[in-house]
Simulated scan of single mutants.
Amino acid sequence: MANETMTVNRLPALTWNWLKMNAARLEANAPAVGAAPSFVQTAQLARSSAAQDWAMETGMGTDVDRFLANSPAEYLTLGENEVMDAPAVITYTYQPGTPAGDRLYLEAKAGSTMQVAVILRNEIAGEGLAALQIKIKAEAGAVVNLSMVQVLDNGFTCLSDIGTTCADGASFELTKLELGSGKLYAGAAADLIGKGSNFTARIGYLGQGEQRLDMNYVARHRGKKTTCEMDSTGVLAGKAFKLFRGSIDLLPGGSGAKGQEQENVLLLGDGVVNQTIPLILCGEEDVEGNHGATIGRLDEKMLFYLASRGIPEEAARSLLARARIEAVVDLLPEALAEEAHKFMEAHTDEL
């Protein structure tokens, strides 16, 4: 296994180097095996060949392409105008010790509606590397709904990378919940090439103990009248560190584009480190971009109210913090929501 140094989660436009927010650097052993994923899928979603060009920008960047170049890959396709009425559930179960990496390629043909739900987990405790890259092609008028939950133990380092291209009228809808792993590097990039294409992201995260979360989400508006909406909700406790980059790139030629990005962070305690970079890049005149961040602590009046109803302060803190995460859990398919609830029951006592 070769040790590799990677630069990931690079901002589309760099800020001051002394802020140390432009990108993340990490060292990891190249994956030697895959996670042997298990599938629960409908007959509509068929395995296909790799005989096409899958080059596209991802949230984490090209170093991850190289890092996972020899990892096992699955190619899944949904035919034209087919509509899935239930998600295909894919579970990646990682083991401690040997680094494991996987690639997943999803192709939604014109007019189709694809639903895929992904779980990243482990059964045996220990230290390990879990890496997954997902690339998605949404043809004209297609809708791809991807839901993900990550519930790895604290001993794992997780790399979770997504890239997509959207043709005319296509839509990529992402719901993603990050609950575990001691070190998380995650990113998603949507290339809105076609007229009227759309990217919607609902992201939730929980950082506690000494967890480190580094995330990068980018919407690139190339086509006319494209839209994006990125909403993230997180809770940080203990000595957790989090860096979230949310970029709306309004490129030349994308007239009529509209982008919205918002983050809401709840801080529990004085030991947490929170860094947020909402970024809008504008290369076109007839566009609209909005971004913002709300960062705060628990409402003392609410804590007092709950105390007056007989709920101890520690229990009230945990209740209010979990309510933030539950708002994202409610958007997940049943199988993923069960994994999230199981993890939170076992790991949120200290909030």
Rank of each mutant, 00 (worst) to 15 (best):
P12K: 06
W18P: 07
A23S: 11
P31S: 02
A32H: 05
G34I: 01
F39E: 08
A46F: 12
R47L: 14
S48T: 14
G61I: 08
D65Q: 00
L68Q: 02
L78F: 12
V83K: 15
A86V: 12
P87V: 08
T93E: 08
A100N: 04
G101R: 09
D102K: 04
Y105V: 07
L106G: 03
A108M: 06
Q115G: 07
V118Y: 06
I119F: 07
G126L: 06
E127P: 01
A131E: 09
Q133D: 02
K135W: 05
G141R: 05
S147I: 13
S147P: 01
Q150T: 08
L152I: 02
L152Y: 05
N154Q: 06
C158S: 13
C166N: 09
C166G: 12
A170P: 00
F172Q: 10
E173D: 15
T175Q: 05
G180H: 00
G182M: 04
K183I: 13
A186K: 02
G187N: 06
A188R: 07
A189Y: 10
G196C: 11
N198K: 10
A201H: 10
G207T: 07
E210P: 06
Q211A: 05
G223T: 04
C228E: 02
M230S: 13
M230E: 06
K242Y: 13
F244H: 09
D249R: 10
G254S: 08
G254F: 10
E261T: 09
E261I: 05
N264W: 12
V265A: 12
L268E: 07
V272D: 00
C282E: 15
E285W: 14
D286E: 15
G289E: 07
N290L: 07
A293N: 09
I295Y: 09
L298E: 01
E300N: 04
Y305D: 03
L306W: 03
E313R: 14
S318T: 14
L320S: 08
A323K: 05
E345D: 03
E345I: 11
T348I: 10
